[in-house]
């Protein structure tokens, strides 16, 4: 997104730019994998997958998670690192049609996979219906969890369409329906610290064509 003061400068661009300045000044840049990567990278392994329809080929330390590969190696910074332990859902992406926590998956284990991130769902000029619904229904405040919420929400409606039951499905032999109870239960892996939950359900109900 462009800055309102200078349309050519994005927040990410500024952050990347300042990191480069710091590095040039003689201070080592922060390790891309965070403080837990306590030893230097070992030998790398090649991996190939499709991200948002585009073939990508990377050589990675096997410790690199799918989330870090997307954010730090492919500069797809829409997917967020919240807890980095699969508890918050900020890193949710869609792999081969199903949502997963990209922080709890090694990138090298995704050979041949089709990965969709928030950047692949829609563009600022051509929003995905779920992105538009989140805007219309005010399904966020700070926005940090939003890419994960939206990827999850899109996949949840597909899961319901595909007849996958949930804990909220009264009779597991029935086809589940996109009720508010079903969507709430299925979205429990996405935490929103601002508490936008009720508006998120409104947005999802809108896209599903049901009433919250």
């Amino acid at each position: 997104m462009a800055s309102p003061l200078n349309p050519d400068v994005s927040r990410r661009g500024v952050i990347v730019g300042s990191a480069a300045t710091v590095a040039a000044g003689g201070t080592a840049p922060l390790n891309a994998q965070g403080p837990r990567m306590t030893t230097p990278p070992g030998p790398t392994l090649p991996v190939q997958f499709k991200v948002n329809g585009e073939d990508r080929r990377l050589d990675l330390d096997p410790r690199v998670t799918l989330l870090d590969a997307l954010r730090e190696h492919l500069q797809l910074t829409g997917s967020k690192k919240g807890c980095d332990h699969g508890q918050c859902g900020a890193c949710t992406v869609i792999v081969n049609g199903r949502r997963i926590n990209s922080c709890l998956s090694l990138a090298v284990m995704h050979e041949g996979d089709q990965i969709t991130t928030i950047e692949g769902l829609g563009t600022p000029d051509n929003l995905h219906p779920m992105q538009r619904a989140f805007v219309v229904h005010d399904g966020y405040q700070c926005g940090y969890c939003t890419p994960g919420q939206i990827c999850s929400a899109v996949a949840v409606l597909d899961e319901i369409k595909d007849g996958i039951p949930s804990h909220a499905t009264a009779d597991v032999t029935d086809r589940p329906r996109a009720t508010a109870d079903e969507m709430r239960e299925r979205m429990s892996g996405n935490i929103c610290r601002c508490g936008a939950y009720s508006n998120i359900i409104e947005a999802m109900s809108d896209v599903a064509g049901t009433r919250a």
């Binding site: 699969g86 859902g89 997963i100 804990h167 597991v172």
Partner: peptide, 19 residues
């Protein structure tokens, strides 16, 4: 084996169950 479906769906989150 509905007891098995129900038990699995009572655990974790959708993202975790997919993996």
């Amino acid at each position: 084996y509905a007891v098995l479906s129900r038990a699995i769906m009572a655990g974790a989150s959708g993202q975790l169950r997919n993996k």
